[in-house]
Design a protein around this nucleic acid. Structure first.
Lengths: 335, 335
DNA sequence: CTGTTAGCGCCTTCAG
DNA sequence: CTGAAGGCGCTAACAG
């Protein structure tokens, strides 16, 4: 690989001049600029990224950490992240947090030195983790998927509780009162907020919270299947069901159809995510859409901006949107 | 951020010594090693990744390029890629090729300088693209998803044609003869090989290829829906259907159910991918599983090995595995 | 076992 | 408008 010195020799100029034409800054006479260009071309010269990073103290890459590469929104998330990053002519360094706050912490500290800012999309870390990170990190941090503002870092949030409230409200407005719930993992803020939304909406409608109607899921399709089966096996009576994501709703659909319970005639179902498959299940799934792409775009752009100049920590809340499809209808038991 | 010099001063030793304890190479007296360690700790010192990369000419990161972040296997792929990479204590620099060979080429040239080897998982590039890359790249290249050996780079391949042959063979063995086909995009080797598999298997069974039975899809669920609808609208007669991936099969399932054609009683369907959802559709989907994780692991490990010492280009072929579920049954028309 | 001395390839004042 | 020189932080011979 040829270096800047090779270009210097061939073009008969100094490193400074070559550097100027590479970076398009500083004044260079048109003619010398030209000779330098052709020298570079002749040599197939490409500036060394690493050397440049060392000299400028800028890597021109953005770190992106997700809790688990195999997560639901992952494709969209990275698609958008990559688009926004490339639009700014930067690179994306992505890392998997392995759904474990400690591993995630390690992962972040590891990539810290290779990027100019970090965006964290994760469900696992506690506030303590985040705070520690924000304090230790030498690069700006933008956190997605937190529930509350943080005095130490910027957060792009989604109103998890509000989304589930929206779902339950809708079911109630359709006359349902026996509303089952398949939760997600409850050991993190997202799951907890969603469950709070479920309880809260019931409460708001003067309905009692019944533990028996609640089964535990883990966001995967199988866990929705299993959870719903559990409900059926226990003989719990319900006319509607809230699933903490679309995939689990699909699993529930399967469990219900296996025992001959028809959706939506006997049971209405609603999910969250607006997974692409939701328009193609039978019946099509009523759900709440998360503005993942908008949020991601925002996060990346914020992170990019922070590499230029720090701002005081901000908080941005996004909300979901109800998408009505076939899986919810008025309650048949309704009197 | 403290540098190696700060550690030197505090520990009262030279840079060389500090470097030795950091890298655990070269002899260092136990006691001085200890003082250096505590100095580092006291300062919260962390070696500068970029500087080290410049000095060693090794970035300890691996480039991974996918044709599209929002692709089907993407989650699993990156999950495995990240696992293998981290196992080797390296980082993953991923890039989206935007389903366009030229953009992809640019993307690769761009990350080239930031990694020690590159793994390319893509459908779009032609052999010419690959060859050009292999020639120009200054780091080793491992390509996944090619169909044939390449004299210039290592390839980890999947037997696309064989997979579809397997599918058609199975349908034929079930007595089907009017077998429709929803293709994927046909402007790349994968789609072409799969279509060749379809034709080839028919031929092998002495059956004629009928263009009317073939509709064009683009791997998304909607395109499967649309393609199947097209078939139905045209009044084409078929008792079985091959879809070039599971998602399109789901779309087809929807289209069929909308017009009251029951699967598998009236039409059998088979897909490729073994998508997690395939066990939960109604009916569950017969499909061919791709050993994506194995292939990815292999690719990463090979790439990692190549950073140590180059080997002469190799070719590794993986094959699919038929997974029988409910969506295929013997042909009713069978006499 | 440890220190000295060059670089790695580029950017960036500061002179001219 | 251009060149010289120092430095980014670390590694790696080479001496001692």
């Amino acid at each position: 690989m040829s270096t800047i010195v090779d270009v210097c020799k061939l073009a008969g100029v100094s490193k400074a001049t070559v550097s100027r034409v590479i970076n398009g800054n500083g004044p260079v006479k048109e003619s010398t600029r030209h000779t330098v260009y052709s020298a570079m071309e002749q040599l197939g010269y490409r500036p060394n990224t690493v050397a440049r990073a060392l000299a400028t103290n800028e890597t021109s890459t953005l770190g992106f950490v997700v809790s688990d590469f195999n997560g639901i929104h992952f494709g969209l998330l990275l698609k958008q992240a990559s688009a926004s990053t490339e639009a700014a002519n930067k690179q994306l360094l992505v890392t998997d947090g392995h759904n474990d706050p400690d591993k995630e912490y390690e992962a972040i500290r590891k990539i810290e030195g290779s990027c100019d800012a970090i965006v964290l999309y994760s469900r696992t870390p506690t506030d303590a983790h985040i705070n520690q990170l924000a304090k230790q990190l030498t690069v700006p941090l933008v956190v997605m998927n937190r529930l509350a503002p943080n005095p130490l870092c910027h957060v792009i949030a989604f109103d998890q509780q509000g989304a589930v409230e929206m779902m339950v409200d809708y079911l109630v407005s359709c006359g349902h009162s026996k509303i089952a719930c398949i939760t997600g993992t409850l050991n993190n803020p997202t799951g907890q907020a969603r469950l709070a939304g479920y309880k809260n909406s019931l409460l708001a409608h003067g309905m009692a919270f019944d533990q028996e109607l609640v089964v535990y899921g883990e966001y995967f399709i199988e866990s929705g299947y299993r959870a719903c089966k559990e409900l059926i096996d226990k003989g719990v009576d319900f006319t509607a069901m809230v699933a903490f994501n679309d995939h689990m709703a699909f699993g529930a659909l399967k469990a219900l159809s296996e025992v001959g319970i028809s959706v939506p005639e006997q049971v209405s179902i609603i999910g969250i995510d607006d997974d692409p498959t939701s328009s193609f299940s039978s019946p099509t799934l009523t759900t709440v859409e998360l503005p993942i792409e908008k949020m991601t775009k925002h996060a990346i752009e914020l992170a990019l901006a922070l590499t230029k100049d720090k701002k005081t920590p901000s908080f941005h809340l996004y909300t979901g949107r109800l998408i009505k499809r076939e899986s919810v209808i008025p309650c048949a038991d309704d009197i």
